[in-house]
């Protein structure tokens, strides 16, 4: 092996180790925040964690980790109920203090139950009513392109969210306007509030729907961080249409008793023993567990 390729491989290993660490920290802080709040949606926060880690850790260009630079990339969490994971990934990146995810849902804090842009500007917009964040991201992509700003816009949607009519209004709109600076990501964990998507309102054939609406659609394993990186690179290299990354994920990923169980979608009150087990399975240190659960 040549020196150059060895160096490249070491770089790549370092990137992946870093992304794995961001993802782990994101999951830990999200669960700790939900435990401390006594409510919140753990399932969809955990399924989104690898996607968020790769986006913030490797893809988004956010100078200074603030929303101050007009030329920054934008990320909109349209599935606003995954706020615990969003605040957690910012803390994992060092953009905000750990106190932000840990103060989740507390009165008088910036850590609102769903992201609010006036409290936490990195939210980019306020979400929590499904379908709207996606449209707002489309507006950002249109507005940036209109002003010749080369930044990219990313929006993460839930699968259940795609039952909203507004999502398909937006899908038509982004394709019609040829918004190649827009990349949507669906956290396709197959579960929603009450049951499996397929039992509530089936989405399949899902990728075919997006393609029929004029999008470039990529399907990946949403926990394979190398695949996420590759998909985002493919999206950035697509110049004639918006891209949708359909990320197949597992709801509750990383916590054995939560994985693929609809019960853990909704806003739950986590018990101390459940939380201790979850944090241990997610690789939290004893010190962190003790601090967070105090």
């Amino acid at each position: 092996m040549s020196a150059i390729s060895l160096a490249a491989r070491q770089d790549q290993d370092r990137v992946h180790a870093r992304l794995a660490a961001i993802a782990a920290r994101t999951r830990q802080l999200a669960i700790a925040g939900i435990y401390r709040a006594g409510s919140g949606h753990p399932g969809g926060a955990l399924s989104a964690a690898d996607l968020l880690a790769v986006l913030y850790g490797a893809e988004l260009n956010i100078p200074g980790g603030t929303a101050d630079d007009p030329a920054r990339d934008r990320f909109v969490l349209s599935k606003g109920h995954a706020a615990p994971a969003l605040y957690a990934v910012w803390a994992a990146m060092g953009y905000v203090a750990d106190a932000v995810p840990l103060a989740l849902r507390r009165i008088g804090t910036a850590s609102q139950g769903h992201p609010h842009v006036l409290d936490l500007p990195l939210s980019e917009t306020s979400t929590g009513s499904l379908g709207q964040g996606f449209s707002v991201a489309i507006g950002m992509a249109l507005g940036l392109r209109h002003q010749y700003v080369a930044a990219r816009v990313y929006a993460m949607l839930g699968d259940g969210e795609c039952q909203e009519g507004e999502v398909w209004e937006g899908a038509m709109c982004a394709a019609h306007h040829g918004l190649s600076n827009l990349c949507a990501i669906v956290d396709y964990n197959k579960l929603q509030s009450d049951d499996r998507n397929a039992n509530i309102m089936g989405l399949e054939p899902f990728a075919a729907k997006w393609r029929a609406f004029g999008w470039h659609a990529i399907e990946i394993d949403g926990h394979d961080r190398a695949a996420i990186l590759a998909a985002l690179a493919e999206a950035a290299a697509t110049h004639d249409r918006p891209t949708i990354v359909i990320a197949h994920t597992i709801k509750g990923k990383g916590v054995s008793y939560m994985e693929d169980r609809p019960l853990w979608h909704g806003s739950v009150k986590m018990k101390p023993d459940e939380t201790r087990q979850a944090l241990a399975e997610l690789g939290a240190t004893e010190t962190d567990i003790a601090t967070w659960m105090a």
């Binding site: 007009p70 842009v117 980019e124 917009t125 379908g131 709207q132 449209s135 707002v136 991201a137 489309i138 507006g139 950002m140 992509a141 249109l142 507005g143 940036l144 209109h146 002003q147 700003v149 009519g165 507004e166 209004e169 937006g170 709109c173």
Partner: peptide, 15 residues
């Protein structure tokens, strides 16, 4: 519905 929320996004870019 999409148009209304898109307007919010466009305003977020300074328009």
């Amino acid at each position: 519905q999409n148009m209304m929320a898109v307007a919010g996004g466009m305003a977020a870019t300074g328009l």
